[in-house]
Amino acid sequence: MSTTNGQRTRIDKVVTSGTFSLDGGTWEVDNNVWVVGDDSECVLIDAAHDIEPIVEAIAGRRVRGILLTHAHDDHIGVACELAGDLGAHTYLHPEDRELWDRTHPGVGPDSDLADGDLFTIGDVTLEVLHTPGHSPGSCSFHSPDLGVVFTGDTLFRGGPGATGRSFSDFPTIVDSITDRLLTLPPETVVHTGHGDDTTIGDESPHRQAWVDRGH
Score class of each variant (00 low, 15 high):
Met1Trp: 08
Thr3Gly: 07
Arg8Cys: 09
Thr9Ile: 09
Ile11Met: 13
Asp12Arg: 13
Val15Arg: 13
Thr16Leu: 12
Phe20Tyr: 13
Phe20Glu: 09
Ser21Asn: 11
Ser21His: 11
Ser21Tyr: 04
Gly24Ser: 09
Gly25Asn: 05
Gly25Pro: 02
Trp27Tyr: 11
Trp27Cys: 05
Val29Trp: 03
Asp30Pro: 04
Asp30Glu: 15
Val35Gln: 10
Gly37Ile: 06
Asp38Phe: 09
Asp39Arg: 12
Ser40Met: 06
Ser40Asp: 12
Cys42Thr: 13
Ala48His: 04
Val55Asp: 07
Val55Phe: 05
Glu56Ile: 07
Glu56Phe: 08
Ala59Gly: 09
Arg61Thr: 10
Val63Trp: 04
Ile66Asp: 03
Leu68Gln: 00
Asp73Ser: 09
Val78His: 10
Ala79Leu: 04
Ala79Asp: 06
Leu82Ala: 09
Gly84Tyr: 02
Asp85Pro: 04
Leu86Ile: 08
Tyr91Asp: 01
Leu92Phe: 00
Leu99Phe: 02
Trp100Met: 04
Trp100Ala: 04
Asp101Pro: 06
Asp101Leu: 15
Thr103Tyr: 08
Pro105Phe: 10
Pro105Lys: 12
Val107His: 07
Pro109Lys: 03
Pro109Thr: 08
Pro109Trp: 05
Asp112Trp: 01
Asp112Leu: 01
Asp112Ala: 08
Ala114Asn: 14
Phe119Thr: 02
Gly122Leu: 13
Thr125Glu: 14
Leu129His: 02
His130Gln: 05
Gly133Glu: 11
Gly133Ile: 07
His134Asn: 15
Ser135Tyr: 07
Gly137Asp: 01
Ser138Lys: 00
Ser143Glu: 01
Ser143Gln: 01
Ser143Val: 00
Pro144Leu: 05
Pro144Asn: 03
Gly147Phe: 10
Val149Leu: 09
Thr154Val: 15
Arg157Tyr: 10
Arg157Met: 13
Gly158Glu: 10
Gly159Ile: 09
Ala162His: 13
Thr163Asn: 14
Gly164Gln: 10
Ser166Thr: 14
Phe167Cys: 12
Ser168Pro: 07
Ser168Asn: 12
Phe170Thr: 13
Thr172Asp: 14
Ser176Val: 04
Leu181Thr: 02
Leu184Cys: 06
Pro186Ala: 10
Glu187Cys: 04
Glu187Thr: 06
Thr188Asp: 02
Thr188Ala: 00
Val189Cys: 13
His191Thr: 08
Gly195Trp: 11
Gly195Met: 14
Asp196Ser: 14
Asp196Gln: 14
Asp197Cys: 11
Thr198Ala: 14
Gly201Phe: 03
Glu203His: 02
Pro205Cys: 07
Pro205Trp: 12
Ala209Arg: 13
Val211Gly: 09
Val211Arg: 12
Val211Phe: 05
